[in-house]
């Protein structure tokens, strides 16, 4: 086992899953929805990118954009179906979670029905060059994945920090009731948040499809990884999610070297449970105050 190789792999996966986890975190803390339909959004954006590559253009940036746009569109759809009708009804959190699960079931079955169970693969959007760094080989897709996810997430966070809409979203994250009182529209902000987090999921889908194939149920594992990172980092904290992504990536690398690949999930959940037993609100419980349900 080459430790450097595994470390780079873990870093790449941490970047991609971290993107998804930040989306989950932002959704929960701003609109109070536990979105478990990311599996569907993820798979749908993969198929969107695939359709684009088939019929429009195989140019990398175009395919990436198609994936992000499909993800954002699916985010809007989930918002319109699961957030808008019930966000002011009793026991919204449970019902919202179940509604997103139902959307996940419907969506993945529709994809399965329409596209069939055969996996699809995307063209290599970052080209096929490689860099030798000492004895470690860095392929184009790895560098591309790391750079693209970090750039996009940084852009989104910067936008959230500097723009009017971002201010609204951050206000919702701090205190949704107070935000509503000072005139921030809960529904319109919900649409913005869901579109952005859907777009992040779409980005993750296209980046991950450089390593894995696109299939109707392929979104499940990334969603579970994203959820566990968000959980470990503390729902609602971007910094916590980033730290958790790196920690879990390291854990994955160390476990596969020391114990073997099949024990990765076991050590990962043992690690998460340990963190949550000490800090029930995740790493963010140390960093800042997380939103109370």
């Amino acid at each position: 086992m080459d430790f450097g190789f595994i470390l780079i792999n873990a870093l790449v996966l941490a970047c991609i899953y971290g993107t998804l986890a930040i989306g989950i975190s932002i959704t929960w803390s701003s609109v109070g929805l536990i979105n478990l339909s990311y599996g569907f959004i993820f798979a749908a954006s993969g198929y969107g990118a695939w359709l684009c590559a088939q019929y429009i253009s195989t140019f990398g940036a175009v395919v990436l954009m198609a994936g992000i746009l499909t993800g954002a569109l699916m985010g809007l759809l989930v918002c319109a179906l699961a957030f808008i009708p019930i966000h002011d009804k009793p026991s919204f959190t449970v019902r919202g979670m179940i509604a997103t699960l139902a959307i996940n079931l419907i969506g993945t079955q529709t994809l399965m029905w329409y596209f069939g169970p055969r996996a699809k693969s995307l063209p290599e959007i970052f080209g096929s060059w490689k860099i030798h760094l000492g004895h470690i080989v860095l392929t184009a897709d790895k560098i591309g994945n790391i750079v693209a996810s970090i750039v996009v997430v940084t852009l989104v966070l910067q936008w959230m920090r500097s723009s009017r809409r971002g201010l609204e979203i951050r206000a919702m994250m701090m205190n949704p009731h107070a935000a509503a009182i000072v005139g921030i529209g809960v529904r319109s902000t919900g649409f913005y948040v869901m579109a952005i987090t859907g777009g992040l999921a779409g980005l993750a889908a296209v980046l991950l499809s450089q390593t894995y194939y696109i299939s109707p149920f392929g979104g499940l594992t990334p969603m579970i990884k994203g959820v566990s990172i968000a959980l470990c980092g503390g729902l609602g904290s971007v910094r916590g999610a980033a730290i958790a992504a790196v920690l879990l990536g390291l854990n994955e690398a160390i476990t596969s070297v020391a114990l073997g690949g099949q024990y990765v999930l076991i050590t990962q959940f043992a690690f998460i449970i340990l963190i949550l037993l000490v800090r029930p609100r995740g790493i963010a419980g140390i960093l800042d105050k997380a939103r109370e349900a």
């Binding site: 536990i34 499940l220 959980l231 999930l265 076991i266 949550l276 037993l277 029930p280 349900a293």
Partner: peptide, 29 residues
């Protein structure tokens, strides 16, 4: 054990992960 400390939805997400853990472990074993 985690249910003693965790709130409702944190626990839901964690158990979802445990379910996946069982699936992956059983499939690889």
């Amino acid at each position: 054990i985690p249910a003693t400390r965790l709130d409702g939805f944190y626990y839901a997400l964690l158990t979802l992960g445990l379910n996946e853990l069982c699936r992956v472990y059983a499939q690889q074993s």
